[in-house]
Protein backbone atom coordinates (compact mmCIF):
# COMPACT_ATOMS: atom_id res chain seq x y z
CA UNK A 1 0.00 0.00 0.00
CA UNK A 2 1.34 3.35 -0.93
CA UNK A 3 -1.08 5.23 1.37
CA UNK A 4 -1.65 8.15 -0.91
CA UNK A 5 -4.78 10.24 -1.13
CA UNK A 6 -5.68 10.02 -4.81
CA UNK A 7 -8.00 12.44 -6.55
CA UNK A 8 -9.10 12.42 -10.17
CA UNK A 9 -11.16 15.62 -10.48
CA UNK A 10 -13.10 16.29 -13.66
CA UNK A 11 -13.30 20.07 -13.38
CA UNK A 12 -10.39 22.50 -13.35
CA UNK A 13 -11.92 24.49 -10.47
CA UNK A 14 -12.19 21.31 -8.45
CA UNK A 15 -8.53 20.48 -9.15
CA UNK A 16 -7.43 23.98 -8.15
CA UNK A 17 -9.46 23.73 -4.95
CA UNK A 18 -7.70 20.48 -4.08
CA UNK A 19 -4.31 21.98 -4.86
CA UNK A 20 -5.11 25.01 -2.71
CA UNK A 21 -6.35 22.80 0.09
CA UNK A 22 -3.33 20.50 0.19
CA UNK A 23 -0.69 23.01 -0.87
CA UNK A 24 2.83 21.55 -0.75
CA UNK A 25 1.48 18.11 0.15
CA UNK A 26 -0.14 17.78 -3.25
CA UNK A 27 1.66 16.37 -6.26
CA UNK A 28 0.21 16.66 -9.73
CA UNK A 29 -0.06 13.49 -11.79
CA UNK A 30 -0.45 13.81 -15.55
CA UNK A 31 1.21 11.25 -17.84
CA UNK A 32 3.20 9.85 -14.95
CA UNK A 33 6.21 8.95 -17.05
CA UNK A 34 8.60 10.85 -14.77
CA UNK A 35 6.62 10.79 -11.53
CA UNK A 36 5.45 7.17 -11.35
CA UNK A 37 8.93 5.60 -11.47
CA UNK A 38 9.93 7.77 -8.53
CA UNK A 39 6.88 6.65 -6.59
CA UNK A 40 7.52 3.03 -7.60
CA UNK A 41 11.08 3.30 -6.30
CA UNK A 42 9.84 4.77 -3.01
CA UNK A 43 12.07 7.76 -3.77
CA UNK A 44 9.01 9.92 -3.50
CA UNK A 45 6.12 9.43 -1.11
CA UNK A 46 3.51 12.00 -2.06
CA UNK A 47 0.73 12.45 0.47
CA UNK A 48 -1.78 13.59 -2.10
CA UNK A 49 -1.91 12.92 -5.82
CA UNK A 50 -4.14 14.99 -8.06
CA UNK A 51 -4.61 13.43 -11.47
CA UNK A 52 -5.23 16.10 -14.10
CA UNK A 53 -5.95 13.84 -17.06
CA UNK A 54 -9.72 14.28 -16.79
CA UNK A 55 -9.79 18.10 -16.77
CA UNK A 56 -10.18 18.58 -20.49
CA UNK A 57 -6.65 19.97 -20.82
CA UNK A 58 -5.91 17.75 -23.80
CA UNK A 59 -6.26 20.03 -26.83
CA UNK A 60 -4.35 21.64 -29.67
CA UNK A 61 -6.04 24.70 -31.15
CA UNK A 62 -5.30 27.80 -33.10
CA UNK A 63 -6.59 30.96 -31.49
CA UNK A 64 -5.72 34.60 -31.65
CA UNK A 65 -2.57 34.11 -33.69
CA UNK A 66 -1.34 31.46 -31.33
CA UNK A 67 -1.09 27.74 -31.16
CA UNK A 68 -2.64 26.78 -27.83
CA UNK A 69 -1.79 23.39 -26.40
CA UNK A 70 -3.43 22.04 -23.26
CA UNK A 71 -0.96 21.01 -20.56
CA UNK A 72 -2.26 17.43 -20.48
CA UNK A 73 -1.82 16.92 -24.22
CA UNK A 74 0.27 13.79 -24.78
CA UNK A 75 3.54 14.17 -26.65
CA UNK A 76 2.31 11.62 -29.22
CA UNK A 77 -0.61 13.87 -30.11
CA UNK A 78 1.72 16.83 -30.61
CA UNK A 79 4.00 14.69 -32.77
CA UNK A 80 1.06 13.62 -34.94
CA UNK A 81 -0.67 16.99 -35.23
CA UNK A 82 -0.59 18.53 -38.72
CA UNK A 83 -1.33 21.89 -37.12
CA UNK A 84 1.79 21.70 -34.93
CA UNK A 85 3.86 20.47 -37.85
CA UNK A 86 2.75 23.47 -39.90
CA UNK A 87 2.94 26.19 -37.26
CA UNK A 88 5.72 24.97 -34.96
CA UNK A 89 7.87 22.51 -36.87
CA UNK A 90 10.62 22.34 -34.23
CA UNK A 91 8.10 21.39 -31.56
CA UNK A 92 6.62 18.65 -33.74
CA UNK A 93 10.08 17.25 -34.43
CA UNK A 94 11.10 17.37 -30.76
CA UNK A 95 7.90 15.54 -29.84
CA UNK A 96 8.54 12.94 -32.53
CA UNK A 97 12.09 12.29 -31.32
CA UNK A 98 11.39 12.22 -27.60
CA UNK A 99 11.38 8.99 -25.58
CA UNK A 100 9.54 6.11 -27.27
CA UNK A 101 5.99 5.47 -28.51
CA UNK A 102 4.40 4.11 -25.32
CA UNK A 103 6.01 6.92 -23.32
CA UNK A 104 4.86 9.57 -25.80
CA UNK A 105 1.27 8.36 -25.56
CA UNK A 106 1.28 9.04 -21.82
CA UNK A 107 3.82 11.82 -21.24
CA UNK A 108 2.41 15.33 -21.60
CA UNK A 109 3.76 18.70 -22.67
CA UNK A 110 2.97 20.18 -19.27
CA UNK A 111 4.70 17.33 -17.51
CA UNK A 112 7.80 17.63 -19.67
CA UNK A 113 8.10 21.28 -18.65
CA UNK A 114 7.14 20.86 -14.97
CA UNK A 115 9.66 18.03 -14.55
CA UNK A 116 12.32 20.63 -15.48
CA UNK A 117 15.00 18.29 -16.77
CA UNK A 118 17.88 20.26 -18.30
CA UNK A 119 17.53 17.88 -21.25
CA UNK A 120 13.73 18.23 -21.64
CA UNK A 121 13.11 17.81 -25.34
CA UNK A 122 10.06 20.05 -25.61
CA UNK A 123 11.58 22.98 -23.71
CA UNK A 124 14.09 24.13 -26.32
CA UNK A 125 11.66 24.40 -29.25
CA UNK A 126 9.20 26.28 -27.04
CA UNK A 127 11.93 28.73 -26.03
CA UNK A 128 13.05 29.16 -29.64
CA UNK A 129 9.46 29.79 -30.70
CA UNK A 130 8.92 32.35 -27.92
CA UNK A 131 6.22 30.32 -26.21
CA UNK A 132 4.60 31.07 -22.87
CA UNK A 133 2.95 28.89 -20.25
CA UNK A 134 -0.29 29.78 -18.55
CA UNK A 135 -0.18 28.94 -14.86
CA UNK A 136 -3.42 28.76 -12.88
CA UNK A 137 -4.24 28.50 -9.24
CA UNK A 138 -7.31 29.15 -7.12
CA UNK A 139 -6.10 32.75 -6.95
CA UNK A 140 -5.98 33.29 -10.68
CA UNK A 141 -3.89 33.01 -13.82
CA UNK A 142 -0.48 34.24 -14.87
CA UNK A 143 1.50 33.87 -18.06
CA UNK A 144 5.24 33.18 -17.98
CA UNK A 145 7.71 32.91 -20.86
CA UNK A 146 9.03 29.35 -21.14
CA UNK A 147 12.59 30.66 -21.01
CA UNK A 148 11.82 32.14 -17.59
CA UNK A 149 9.94 29.11 -16.30
CA UNK A 150 12.97 27.05 -15.24
CA UNK A 151 15.07 27.79 -12.15
CA UNK A 152 17.35 24.77 -12.01
CA UNK A 153 17.30 21.02 -12.49
CA UNK A 154 13.85 19.93 -11.26
CA UNK A 155 12.98 23.47 -10.20
CA UNK A 156 10.50 25.87 -11.77
CA UNK A 157 8.59 29.01 -10.90
CA UNK A 158 5.47 26.94 -10.17
CA UNK A 159 4.09 27.74 -6.73
CA UNK A 160 2.24 25.29 -4.48
CA UNK A 161 -1.39 25.26 -5.56
CA UNK A 162 -0.49 26.16 -9.13
CA UNK A 163 -0.63 24.04 -12.26
CA UNK A 164 0.25 24.54 -15.90
CA UNK A 165 -2.99 24.98 -17.81
CA UNK A 166 -1.70 25.42 -21.32
CA UNK A 167 1.20 26.39 -23.52
CA UNK A 168 0.82 29.23 -26.02
CA UNK A 169 3.07 29.30 -29.05
CA UNK A 170 2.97 32.47 -31.16
CA UNK A 171 2.44 31.65 -34.82
CA UNK A 172 5.14 33.40 -36.76
CA UNK A 173 6.34 33.49 -40.34
CA UNK A 174 9.83 32.11 -39.82
CA UNK A 175 11.18 28.62 -39.83
CA UNK A 176 12.05 26.50 -36.81
CA UNK A 177 14.33 23.50 -36.60
CA UNK A 178 15.04 20.98 -33.81
CA UNK A 179 18.04 18.65 -33.71
CA UNK A 180 19.07 16.17 -31.06
CA UNK A 181 21.97 13.84 -30.30
CA UNK A 182 21.91 10.93 -27.90
CA UNK A 183 23.97 7.85 -27.15
CA UNK A 184 21.70 5.78 -29.37
CA UNK A 185 19.00 6.42 -31.95
CA UNK A 186 15.85 5.81 -29.92
CA UNK A 187 14.62 6.03 -26.36
CA UNK A 188 17.47 8.20 -25.27
CA UNK A 189 17.99 11.33 -23.25
CA UNK A 190 19.50 14.16 -25.20
CA UNK A 191 23.25 14.49 -24.85
CA UNK A 192 22.58 17.83 -26.48
CA UNK A 193 19.55 19.25 -28.24
CA UNK A 194 19.13 22.44 -30.20
CA UNK A 195 16.14 24.42 -31.37
CA UNK A 196 16.35 27.52 -33.51
CA UNK A 197 13.87 29.92 -35.04
CA UNK A 198 14.86 32.16 -37.95
CA UNK A 199 12.68 34.61 -39.82
CA UNK A 200 14.02 35.87 -43.14
CA UNK A 201 12.53 39.00 -44.67
CA UNK A 202 11.78 38.18 -48.30
CA UNK A 203 13.75 35.05 -47.69
CA UNK A 204 16.94 37.08 -47.59
CA UNK A 205 17.38 39.18 -44.47
CA UNK A 206 17.29 37.78 -40.96
CA UNK A 207 14.81 39.84 -38.98
CA UNK A 208 14.41 37.46 -36.04
CA UNK A 209 16.59 34.68 -34.74
CA UNK A 210 16.28 32.64 -31.58
CA UNK A 211 18.57 29.85 -30.41
CA UNK A 212 17.94 27.46 -27.53
CA UNK A 213 20.17 24.69 -26.17
CA UNK A 214 19.20 21.67 -24.08
CA UNK A 215 21.38 19.54 -21.76
CA UNK A 216 24.04 22.23 -21.97
CA UNK A 217 23.32 24.09 -18.72
CA UNK A 218 21.34 23.54 -15.49
CA UNK A 219 18.24 24.74 -17.38
CA UNK A 220 17.22 24.80 -21.04
CA UNK A 221 19.07 27.84 -22.29
CA UNK A 222 18.31 30.70 -24.62
CA UNK A 223 21.49 31.99 -26.31
CA UNK A 224 20.95 35.69 -26.88
CA UNK A 225 24.50 36.53 -27.95
CA UNK A 226 24.28 34.02 -30.74
CA UNK A 227 20.96 35.50 -31.81
CA UNK A 228 22.47 38.98 -31.77
CA UNK A 229 25.08 38.28 -34.43
CA UNK A 230 22.42 37.04 -36.83
CA UNK A 231 20.02 39.97 -36.59
CA UNK A 232 19.93 42.04 -39.77
CA UNK A 233 22.32 39.83 -41.70
CA UNK A 234 21.55 39.17 -45.33
CA UNK A 235 22.25 36.26 -47.60
CA UNK A 236 25.43 36.82 -49.65
CA UNK A 237 23.59 37.04 -53.00
CA UNK A 238 20.86 39.32 -51.63
CA UNK A 239 19.87 42.63 -53.11
CA UNK A 240 18.76 43.77 -49.65
CA UNK A 241 20.85 45.94 -47.40
CA UNK A 242 22.30 44.18 -44.42
CA UNK A 243 24.81 44.68 -41.68
CA UNK A 244 26.77 41.53 -42.47
CA UNK A 245 26.48 38.53 -44.70
CA UNK A 246 24.58 35.58 -43.34
CA UNK A 247 26.98 32.92 -44.55
CA UNK A 248 28.80 29.90 -43.29
CA UNK A 249 31.26 31.99 -41.28
CA UNK A 250 28.48 33.98 -39.61
CA UNK A 251 26.57 30.85 -38.73
CA UNK A 252 29.66 29.26 -37.25
CA UNK A 253 30.28 32.44 -35.29
CA UNK A 254 26.75 32.25 -33.89
CA UNK A 255 27.23 28.60 -33.03
CA UNK A 256 30.45 29.39 -31.24
CA UNK A 257 28.77 32.14 -29.22
CA UNK A 258 25.90 29.85 -28.31
CA UNK A 259 28.32 27.27 -26.96
CA UNK A 260 30.23 29.99 -25.11
CA UNK A 261 27.02 30.89 -23.31
CA UNK A 262 26.47 27.29 -22.19
CA UNK A 263 27.96 25.47 -19.22
CA UNK A 264 27.76 21.76 -19.96
CA UNK A 265 28.90 19.12 -17.48
CA UNK A 266 30.54 15.71 -17.69
CA UNK A 267 28.16 12.87 -16.93
CA UNK A 268 27.82 9.23 -17.87
CA UNK A 269 26.26 10.14 -21.21
CA UNK A 270 28.93 12.50 -22.44
CA UNK A 271 31.73 14.81 -21.42
CA UNK A 272 31.44 18.56 -21.51
CA UNK A 273 34.11 18.53 -24.26
CA UNK A 274 31.92 16.40 -26.48
CA UNK A 275 28.80 18.42 -25.70
CA UNK A 276 30.55 21.61 -26.77
CA UNK A 277 31.96 20.12 -29.97
CA UNK A 278 28.78 18.37 -31.02
CA UNK A 279 26.55 21.18 -29.75
CA UNK A 280 28.33 23.66 -31.98
CA UNK A 281 27.84 21.43 -35.00
CA UNK A 282 24.17 21.06 -34.18
CA UNK A 283 23.55 24.79 -33.72
CA UNK A 284 25.26 25.54 -37.02
CA UNK A 285 23.36 22.83 -38.82
CA UNK A 286 20.03 23.96 -37.36
CA UNK A 287 20.63 27.63 -38.19
CA UNK A 288 21.72 26.78 -41.72
CA UNK A 289 18.59 24.72 -42.27
CA UNK A 290 16.33 27.42 -40.82
CA UNK A 291 17.96 30.26 -42.74
CA UNK A 292 18.40 28.36 -45.98
CA UNK A 293 22.18 28.70 -45.98
CA UNK A 294 24.42 25.95 -47.26
CA UNK A 295 27.28 25.09 -44.90
Amino acid sequence: MKDVLYFAPTELTEALKLLAQYGEKATILAGGTDLVPRINYYELKPEVLVYIGNLGLDYIEQSDGKLVIGAATPTAKIAASPLVAEKAAALAEAARLSASPAIRTAGTIGGNLANASPAADLATPLIALGATVVLVSAKGEREVAVEEFFKGPGETVLQPGELIKEVRVPIKKGKSVFLKLGRRKAMTLSVVNVAVYVEMEKGQRCVDARVALGAMAPVPLRCKKAEGVLQGCVLPMSALEGAEFLDKARIEKAAELAIAESSPIDDQRATAWYRRKAGKVLVARALAAAAGVAI
Binding site: Y6, G32, V36, N40, A102, I103, T105
Partner: peptide, 24 residues
Protein backbone atom coordinates in the same frame (compact mmCIF):
# COMPACT_ATOMS: atom_id res chain seq x y z
CA UNK B 1 12.21 -1.50 -12.14
CA UNK B 2 8.77 -0.12 -13.03
CA UNK B 3 10.46 2.79 -14.76
CA UNK B 4 9.30 2.49 -18.36
CA UNK B 5 12.70 1.54 -19.77
CA UNK B 6 12.17 -1.92 -21.31
CA UNK B 7 8.73 -2.06 -22.93
CA UNK B 8 7.90 -5.63 -21.83
CA UNK B 9 4.83 -4.37 -19.94
CA UNK B 10 3.29 -2.54 -22.90
CA UNK B 11 -0.52 -2.88 -23.06
CA UNK B 12 -3.14 -0.99 -25.02
CA UNK B 13 -5.23 1.63 -23.23
CA UNK B 14 -8.14 2.69 -25.42
CA UNK B 15 -6.17 1.22 -28.32
CA UNK B 16 -3.03 3.22 -27.60
CA UNK B 17 0.18 1.57 -26.36
CA UNK B 18 1.15 2.54 -22.81
CA UNK B 19 3.60 1.22 -20.25
CA UNK B 20 1.45 -0.54 -17.66
CA UNK B 21 4.29 0.00 -15.15
CA UNK B 22 3.90 3.77 -15.48
CA UNK B 23 0.12 3.72 -15.34
CA UNK B 24 -1.43 4.09 -11.89
Amino acid sequence: DLEGECGACTVLLDGVPVRSCLTP
